[in-house]
Design a protein around this nucleic acid. Structure first.
Length: 419
DNA sequence: TCTGGGGTCCTAGGACCC
DNA sequence: TCTGGGGTCCTAGGACCC
């Protein structure tokens, strides 16, 4: 059996932990740059606040209804996530951290009769130790556990826990689940399935496998098999190695000069390079993109450029230089740019480095040592203690975050006050 | 004025190899 | 009428996830 533990309205719940006055009040959390609504508390959902809507279009409505609005605060959410996951690790040795607010647990060792109790314990302990409310769904496959969780979260009679086993229980659950809400069915597939008379998960479960394969490739077939109780997606305890790393941001205000773009790209390359080193990896292909606003009537321009490196690297200096050179290739004057980004692909493990014919290297290079020192200093004294001059200072394009709460758990000067 | 960011997998088709 | 057979690698595009 597999249990899916999912935090309820995770970002909103994180805000509440350190501001209990928000309990029972409608809350929304905005995306980077205060652009869109990306999380809503139960109360906000009930008011009909749409997911993903641009904030500026909802602002009046939110004000009128007394909805509290927060800029995203990933320092806080990331740290709260680590706390929740470390609690969950105590409940099963087989755990897959699936996203910032979800984890699959292998609970096949738990006696059948005890599984409900066990899941309730998970829910209670996580809440008690971290302050975050979670829902737990357990079933024979990941897809069914997802469905059970979905139901547990919304059904009043379930109180956040649902265990489904046996054909009849499963069918009863799936009959109530709209096909749009099945894990792996997005907008396109939902439309296609409904046009063929498949509106709920039970109908999907009973669909013809060959037909599903034709329409939805092998992923669709696996999904249907999972609904039938046949595990096709295993719990991945060790995360697969990364295939790409992207760092990009919309700007707080439009940018026109190549110098500003260069600084922004240098900053994104620095972020991505640091992530690369945490993963003990090297990159061989770097690409960048710049783009103007895709809304409105202003002239548009969007371009990307990439480069294959002669030798894989994780050296910030090299990568910053490369992004600068790529920018020279695609920058065009006279446009208002609103977003840029850096993308690393062709990522390999650092210990499997293929040297180029012309390198002479024995053990740790000067570059490795420098990057190590840089990472240590930034870790100990805070991000940006040491950075390349290319990143510049006084970024006028820095993203908007006007409603960010304190980073209660990761900054000494932002700890919550209790009196 | 204001519209997020970061990932995965699969398939088809073209280029190329022997 | 009929023009081999069997592969690999790469990329772009489409679908999905949180």
């Amino acid at each position: 059996m597999i249990a899916l533990v999912d935090c309820n309205n995770f970002y909103a719940s994180c805000q509440r932990v350190f501001d209990p006055g928000l309990e029972g009040k409608p809350i929304v959390v905005l995306s980077n740059n205060d652009g869109c609504i990306v999380a809503r508390s139960r109360e906000a959902k009930r008011l009909g606040v749409p997911m993903g809507a641009p904030y500026f279009k909802q602002r009046d409505f939110l004000d009128k209804n007394g909805v509290r609005v927060f800029s995203s605060n990933y320092a806080l959410y990331g740290d709260m996530s680590r706390r929740v996951m470390s609690v969950l690790e105590q409940f099963s040795p087989g755990i897959e951290i699936y996203s910032i607010d979800e984890a699959f647990l292998d609970v096949s060792g738990i006696e059948t009769g005890d599984l409900e109790d066990y899941c309730e314990r998970i829910r209670d302990i996580v809440k008690q130790w971290t302050g975050i409310p979670v829902s737990v769904g357990a079933a024979a496959t990941k897809t069914l556990a997802k469905a059970a969780n979905e139901y547990a979260k919304n059904a009043v009679d379930k109180n956040g826990v649902m265990v489904v086993r046996g054909e009849e229980d499963v069918n009863a659950l799936l009959a109530k689940l709209p096909v749009d809400d099945v894990w792996g069915i997005g907008r396109r597939y939902a439309v296609m399935l409904k046009s063929h008379g498949i509106a709920n998960a039970l109908q999907l479960k009973r669909a013809d496998l060959e037909w599903i394969h034709r329409k939805m490739t092998v992923m669709g077939e696996r999904l249907v098999r999972e609904l039938r109780g046949e595990p096709c997606f295993a719990i991945e305890e060790t995360p697969a190695s990364r295939k790409s790393i992207v760092s990009s941001r919309s700007f707080g205000m439009p940018v026109t000069s190549i110098d500003d773009l260069r600084e922004a790209l240098a900053m994104y390359a620095t972020t991505a390079a640091a992530k690369l080193r945490v993963l003990k990896s090297l990159v061989s292909r770097v690409s960048i993109f710049i783009t103007t606003n895709r809304f409105g009537s202003a002239p548009r321009y969007a371009e990307c450029a990439g480069l294959e490196l002669t030798e894989p690297t994780a050296d910030t200096r090299v990568l910053v230089k490369v992004t600068g050179n790529l920018l020279n290739r695609i920058y065009r004057e006279g446009f208002k740019y609103v977003k840029a980004g850096v993308c690393f692909t062709d990522i390999t493990a650092a210990n499997a480095r293929q040297l180029s014919l012309f390198t002479c290297s024995n053990g740790r290079s000067r570059s490795d040592s420098l990057m190590y020192a840089l990472d240590e200093l930034n870790e100990k004294f805070g991000r940006n203690t040491i950075k390349t001059a290319a990143e510049g200072v006084n970024h006028c394009w820095h993203m908007r975050q006007s409603k960010r709460s304190n980073r209660f758990t990761t900054r000494w000067d932002e700890l919550p006050r209790v009196c």
